[in-house]
Design a binder for these strands. Sequence first.
RNA 1: GGUACCAUAGCUCAGUUGGUAGAGCAACGGACUGAAAAUCCGUGUGUCGCUGGUUCAAAUCCCGCUGGUACCA
Length: 295
Amino acid sequence: MKLITILGPTATGKTKLAAHLAFRANGEIIGADSRQVFRKMNIGTGKDYEDYIVEGTLIPYHLVDIMEPGEEFSVFDFYKGFVSAFNEISGKGKLPILCGGTGLYLESVLKRYLLMEVPENIELRKGLSAKDENELIEILSGLKSLHNTTDTVCKDRLVRAIEIEYFHKENPAKQPQWPEFESYVFGVNYERSVVMKRITSRLKTRLDNGMVEEVESLIRSGVKKDRLKTYGLEYKYVTQYLEKEIDYNEMFRLLNIAIHQFSKRQMTWFRRMERNGINIYWIDGNMPIEDKVDL
RNA sequence: GGUACCAUAGCUCAGUUGGUAGAGCAACGGACUGAAAAUCCGUGUGUCGCUGGUUCAAAUCCCGCUGGUACCA
């Protein structure tokens, strides 16, 4: 079995390329984008349904529009979705094409992360519920090195993180059911200054196309503002604008910078993957879509 | 035309009584295994507008020039 991966920083036309490849090679797309999984988050996530249509044919896609905005979705949920989509596609004799820009999700597949279903541990939870946040942070940092504070902002997440670490310690031998595949990874990229220009002009288009209204309607439908802010970028800054924390020009300026920085962080992931032995065949974004020859 | 003020990092600016410069933002590099578009760590990148002078020593004081801002004509 083969797995083709198409990755790259934001605003480089990955989806379009993946769709053309799928059209040519009888494939289906598996999204590796942590924000496009949410329905009704379209303009802000750069979800463009047109991209999936090649010469009038709709290319089937997976792991896009599978959650309601505001719901929880994690690498593990992605992993499960990936495995079942991969099996379904290859079961039909078609070619799975993983396409997206979320480094963690891509790496979880390409480096075959050890991820297992971790059941709730009632007994452990009972013991932990008596402790305060600082004690929990201490316990967690004894189990793993803490790289971020997303795990430690609230008690629920702390308890869950500890639960997962305990489970891994107690069940070290359990390997997840990874499908076997020959992996080919392609990266789409432009010179950094070009990516930045593309980001800026795309941001203008998005605003003209109703991005602010999209966020407004998410808020109206009951998505919490704090939740929107954790979605980052467009959702964070537009929410701040709607909250009148910043004015329109400031929103544009800060958001534009934040997306530039995001694309840089994405490249950090890709470089690291290469250092860790994943071969990425880079494709110049300026090249016409006819670079599917590489199959 | 006259007077005053300003000119320091990519940007906005600090820089005490002279001892060859430093913050914020940007930029750049990195980390990352259950929210990852999140979260966090590291790095100063400089003809101190130009020219001449005073001084052991000038971003700092003086002359002139250039550019800008404000006010007076």
